[in-house]
């Protein structure tokens, strides 16, 4: 168990900065997710933590001790690879015991710990199989068992669920989270799947172009993102430009073409400033409620099962609106919508 800290980590590949002054702190036992689009530098950051890539600049600290000069095999991190990287010439139990053998533990202890790990991931019967004789989901569990059995200070995951089908992915997601909480091990998890990030993490670090643009709890990054790219990456959102009309104790009122909307003013918002608001489709309600209500016309409707996704036009602005239940509305229908009681102010591009 340990506290992990990255300080100004930078890594360039030629002209590409795969990690650009990345600074993150992960508390003891915390589950942090690095979330971002493909090529944003998540894997690079993870591999720097594991010591598989040397940073050009910056420090990696474990419990306050700089470890960036330690070779990979002495880092006491354990990684679950996207490809699982199971050794094809070793059985399941040999794979799981590998890290313990490297630490020269006694054969008895290794057998005992491997048995525990197998039980933990519910693979007891498969200990003598070879990786090629396992399904994708089983291979994934072996990879997890192999990582946790060494009792690492930090557990690292690089998109461990991305090779599995949707159903299994969802189930294993829950199992992983439960396992991590049971072990209480500090964890850094890489994914480009926002749903996964939100479901698993204590905190999410959103990365773009090698930079960490935002860190917060799943609720914070989803509901009140600070960066426009975060809002965009974490699902469907509405952007609305406006001018700050009033500021008071952490809140402000923004004058938009559609009317007044209240927003969180955490970022030193000034009177008269032009800002962009972001709010989720499910925060817009169909019908007249307390708050700013406007009339609009349905341009397009798609039924998604749990919600219906409407594209609504009002005063030359199109908004996405999600309604759970409710009557089906046809394109062309006039409706009244109520803007959310509070929205997020986002900055950048």
């Amino acid at each position: 168990m340990a506290r992990l800290e990255l300080r100004d980590i930078t890594k360039r590949f030629g002209r590409v900065a795969a990690a650009d002054r990345v600074s993150v702190e992960v508390a003891d036992g915390e589950f942090l997710t690095l979330l971002g689009p493909s090529g944003c530098g998540k894997t690079t950051t993870l591999r720097i933590i594991a010591g598989l890539v040397d940073p050009d600049e910056g420090e990696v600290l474990l419990d306050g001790v700089a470890v960036q000069h330690l070779p990979a095999h002495r880092r006491q991190t354990a990684m679950v690879f996207q490809s699982y990287a199971l050794f094809p010439h070793m059985t399941v139990s040999e794979n799981i015991g590998f890290g313990l053998r490297m630490r020269a533990l006694s054969a008895d202890l290794i057998r005992q710990r491997v048995g525990e790990a197998l039980a933990l991931v519910e693979l007891e019967g498969l200990s003598d199989r070879y990786p090629r004789q396992l399904s994708g989901g089983q291979q994934q569990r072996v990879a997890v068992a192999r990582a946790i059995v060494t009792r690492p200070k930090v557990l690292l995951f690089d998109e461990p669920l991305s090779n599995l089908d949707a159903k299994l992915r969802e189930r294993l997601r829950l199992e992983l989270r439960a396992l991590q909480q049971r072990l209480g091990v500090t964890t850094v998890y890489v994914t480009h799947d926002q749903a996964e990030a939100l479901a698993l993490s204590d905190r999410v670090a959103v990365m773009f172009g090698g930079k960490v643009v935002e860190i917060g709890t799943p609720r914070q990054v989803y509901r009140t993102p600070r960066a426009r790219v975060t809002a965009e990456f974490l699902g469907v959102t509405n952007f609305l430009d406006g001018q700050v009309a009033a500021v008071a104790d952490g809140h402000c009122i923004v004058q938009t073409p559609l009317g007044m909307v209240e927003a969180d003013a955490g970022l030193g918002v000034r009177m008269g400033e032009v800002v962009t608001l972001s709010f989720r489709p499910e925060d817009v309600r169909i019908g007249r409620y307390e708050g700013t209500a406007v009339t609009g016309r349905v341009l397009h409707a798609s039924y998604l099962g749990s919600v219906t996704d409407y594209v609504v036009e009002s005063g030359g602005i199109t908004l996405r609106v999600h309604e759970a239940g409710g009557a089906a509305r046809a394109p062309g229908e006039e409706i009244t919508i109520t803007l959310p009681a509070t929205a997020a102010i986002v900055r950048g591009g």
């Binding site: 360039r12 590949f13 493909s38 040397d54 050009d56 996207q82 490809s83």
Partner: peptide, 14 residues
């Protein structure tokens, strides 16, 4: 893709 990139050893070194 990320794997292919990862397989290339690092180029920048002291």
């Amino acid at each position: 893709m990320a794997q292919a990139a990862a397989a290339i050893p690092q180029v920048t070194r002291a």
